[in-house]
Nucleic acid binder design. Structure first.
Ligand SMILES: [Mn+2]
Ligand SMILES: [Mn+2]
Ligand SMILES: [Zn+2]
Ligand SMILES: [Zn+2]
Lengths: 129, 129
DNA sequence: CAATATTTGCAAGTCATTTGCAAATAAAAG
DNA sequence: CTTTTATTTGCAAATGACTTGCAAATATTG
């Protein structure tokens, strides 16, 4: 494992929320090239050390967000459109529902995406909502 | 309502699956400029005549997919990574769950995204799976 | 029909992400 | 440890969906 790859994985592990590839590249700064960040994120995801999903937010546009993958769990998230933080909704709660859809429609599901967007409690208060 | 806008809306209404902006532009061909398609899709969505979601597929990349909006309903979809068709999973079944998350975390949800990706029945057969 | 507001085409930009390639580094072999 | 081979990296250029400025064209208003 190269030093760039180790640094990227460690950064993912130290962050408690999904982080976008571009933000990750920014944090690594001169440590390695953005292209290296992108390539290694692909590597980590293919090797089950990270997961990702794409999310669009009006301020940051459409980006892919990554989390390190501990075990086989993945979580679902709420994204605040104001402060751009994520709130963990907990481990995946869709396994059974997905299975039912597979049965009903006879397709095979490889992946599912679920997330919420809105305004978090803190931002509501700040804005007096 | 301009003729470009009418044509775009009619195309959306005649299509039974979500359609990407670029595919829509391709279908309209010389009828209007791609920029006009993008601008009108924004217009239609802002005026509650269409809805959209972004989805990544390895073959077509990350794109926004649009559907015409009849009433206030929105549907969730399965996307086949092989034939790139969508299968309707039915009207939204998350209203209650979203409400519970709002209560639990005290945030306000503006939108939610849910979709499945995988291989449809027909493609499984074709591939002998 | 004239005056005003909105929309369009076109060309140029934006921005996350990808890619070709030669140099640098890591892993395997001896 | 040194050589050989395989993988990874930086850099610069490309990609592709989407956006935007602007002047001409079309729609709406009165
Ligand atoms: Mn954001
Ligand atoms: Mn597709
Ligand atoms: Zn917030
Ligand atoms: Zn299929």
């Amino acid at each position: 494992m190269t030093k760039a790859r180790k640094a990227i994985l460690k950064t993912l592990e130290n962050v408690e929320e999904p982080i976008s590839a571009s933000e990750l590249a920014k944090r690594l700064g001169d440590f390695c090239d953005p292209a290296t960040v992108y390539r290694n994120l692909h590597y980590l995801e293919k090797n089950n050390l990270a997961t990702s999903f794409i999310l669009h937010c009006s301020e940051h546009g459409t980006e892919r967000y990554y989390s390190s993958k501990e075990g086989n769990e993945h979580h679902h998230w709420f994204h605040c459109e104001q402060c751009h933080r994520f709130i963990d909704l907990g481990g995946c709660f869709y396994a059974e529902q997905v299975r039912q859809f597979e049965e009903k429609h006879a397709f095979t599901v490889h992946d599912h995406t679920f997330y919420l967007t809105g305004i978090c409690q803190r931002c509501k208060q700040k804005l007096g909502l």
